[in-house]
Amino acid sequence: MNMMTEAAVEKALDQKMTAAPYKMIGKDVSVYYGEKRALFDVNLNIRENTVTALIGPSGCGKSTFLRTLNRMNDTIDHCRVTGKITLDTDDIYDPQIDVVELRARVGMVFQKPNPFPKTIWENVAYGPKIHGLARSKADLDVIVEQSLQKAGLFNEVKDRLHEAGTGLSGGQQQRLCIARAIAVSPEVILMDEPCSALDPIATAKVEELIHELRANFTIVIVTHSMQQAARVSQRTAMFHLGHLVEENDTDKMFTNPDDQRTQDYIMGRFG
């Protein structure tokens, strides 16, 4: 009975989310690596407080699109982005926009857990420190604790905050990276295959965490696992050969997709 109501609430929440306003709007986004074109006029909008999953076979441009959202492509030589991407009302490729500030608003979690070779505390405190989010060490302590709480890691590491972050297990390291990302209070969190280096138990924990984070953040996740996309996301976008094939509610996408290619990919016919 109780379970039922919970599921019903969840369902209602999901539906509300699908109808949520757009947080980021991508219009005619193309990306070139030197001569090679990696994305072809992608029009994809990211809804607020929603988990959007980007799926597609390897080399389809989903990670490239993800990285355009916080301009991580800027760090790659010969990489050129055309089109327009807005965050709320700001054009993020506007020369007026400071990329440092953008990345504080759009955080990122990478495929392989990459904690700094410093203590757990320093890992989480680094972002708030460079963005001036805390005045004192006491403030930082609060932020560190809250972030670790939100990442579901605090109870596991509270006695060893000043030990190396690299000493944690893979799953814990990835949650530490998530804690580090949310410590700067971003609006959007980008996750590039965050579970591909983790075992199933750690994956389950991270997925559960993504589910909880949806209440406060807009999440875009790249994944190779159909099951994962189905489990964690409300919206799914399917990429193929640099084109956006289809973007739809996750439920519809996995049951009755509009595009034949989506159907084939989900059924495992290619990819």
């Binding site: 916080n70 991580m72 760090t75 953008l102 504080a104 990122m108 990478f110 990459n114 700094f116 963005h131």
Partner: peptide
């Protein structure tokens, strides 16, 4: 490792930082 650079840049650290 480049992952360390990505981590810092992804957090919004400047190149110098």
């Amino acid at each position: 490792p480049p992952s360390i650079r990505s981590a810092a840049l992804g957090l919004g650290a400047s190149k110098m930082q």
